[in-house]
Structures are given as C-alpha cells and as structure tokens.
Amino acid sequence: MLIVDQYAYSNQLSSVHPVEKMIFSLTTLLIALISNSIIVSVVVIFVMSGLLVLKAKIPKLVFLKLLLVPLSFIIMGLIPIIISVTTSKHDFIVQMSYWGLTLGISSANLITAVELLFRTTASVCCLYFLALTTPMIEINSMLRKLKIPAVFIEFMNLVYRLLFILLDTAHQIKVAQLSRGGYSSIKNTFTSLAYLGSNLLVKAYYRAKKLSLALKARGYKGKIEVLERDHHLSKRNLSIIAVTEIVLVIFSILVEVV
C-alpha cells in the first residue's frame, strides 16, 4: 500500500493526465470483465504489465510481489470451484474416493477456474495500473469533477487515509522491533506480533489524532484542498487509448464468434 503510493507519485507516467489513465484503465477493466475469452485476458495482462514495467518503470519484482497479494486470495477462492465432492459417479479427470465420497476435478470446472483466474488477474492488473500511476489526490479530484457525491469521495478519502496511517504504523513498529532483535526466533516472533497487534490501534489512533490537530491548526474545515499539478490532455495519448480499446473490443467479439 505504502509502496503503491510512492510509485503513484514517482512513476514515469505520473505526468500523464489522470483522465487519460483512468479512461484507459477502466475501459480495459470493463472489457476484461465482460469478455469470456482467456486470450483477451492474457492480452490485457500483457498490455497492462508491459506498460507498467516498460513505460511507468515500476520494477518487475515489485509489480510481481504486488500481484501475488490478490492472487493468493483468488487462488484460495478457486479451490472450492475446482474440487467437487459427490456421492455419485462422474467423469472426473482426477479423483479420490473415501467412504463412499468422491473428491474429483472435472474438466469443465477446471476450465471455469482457469478462465476465472485469468479474468481476475487481468482486472487486478487494470486496477494496479491506475493505482501505481495515479496518486489518490488526483483520482479524488477527478471523481469530484465527474460530480460523484462528495460524501462518497470524502468517505473514500477517509478510509484511504486511515488505512495509510494504520499500515505505515504497522510498518514502523515492525522495523523498530526488527532492529531490537524481534522476530528472531519462533517464540519471540509471537511476542513481537502480540506487541504489534495490541499497540497498533492505539498508536495509529494517536497519530491520526495528531494529524487532525495539525490540519486544524492550518485551518482545515472538513475538506482537504491542495494545488494540483498541471496536466494537459494529450490528443496523441487519447487516440492511442481509443485505438487500443477498439482493437480489444473487436478482438473479444472475434474470439467469441470464431
């Protein structure tokens, strides 16, 4: 999360107009979600990770690690889809029977799971594209321009800021613990974690409180306004985005028909 935020500010695409990035990432996301074809998902994954690594210059390893976070959840969620439990006979590709119960994997389920895996990965890539290239403040101000209700935006902001403080505090505590020999054996890994868990909320609460005091001291009245960086819409980028999206749409229709 923290690292995502750092890259959002410092990546090589940070000067591109946020509207362009948002249109690109969200339309591609829509296509990836609607299309039923693995090929489209694979193309989206390649386009998005290619852009992130080659254009935005996000280090490969960092991106892979970030990708692994949601992927591990997705894969766990796929297990019940892949494995079916029945009492009757089926044409499973692999199966095991115990006490009249059959655990098995059918080819249809396997295909569904693989499709789902690729589609979700493609969607995650689209969202990461936006998150890694566009700072939250800019996404916010765009949502404001799109006339999304203020309550919704402020709520999103609040969650984001609190999450940020929480994660940052957790990271700080962990570094402090490591530097004094924490997490060096199994036993003190548990004590370290217990300290972290029991003090995280208190510490984050005080930090958040101080932050809000500091904001008030500078005249904060419920809405954070900062000067935004100047961006210019680029006709070239917009045309490239339009062409890419059209090609993707045509492609997914073709795959569907053929």
Partner: peptide, 30 residues
C-alpha cells in the same frame, strides 16, 4: 542486531509499547 543497537532519530518511529517498562524489556527479552 544484538550487537549493533540503533537509536532512531524520531522516537515516535521507535516506540510501540503500552508502557515504558514493556518497551525497555522488549530488546533484552529478545
């Protein structure tokens, strides 16, 4: 880390415990 002790510039980054006593005991216990 047992032999090289680092005192952080910002104590807010270093302290995490519910009490001073607990804080000081963390390192020696490790």
């Amino acid at each position: 880390r047992k032999k090289v002790g680092l005192i952080f510039q910002d104590p807010d980054e270093q302290l995490f415990s519910a009490s001073v006593y607990q804080e000081l005991s963390f390192g020696p216990l490790n």
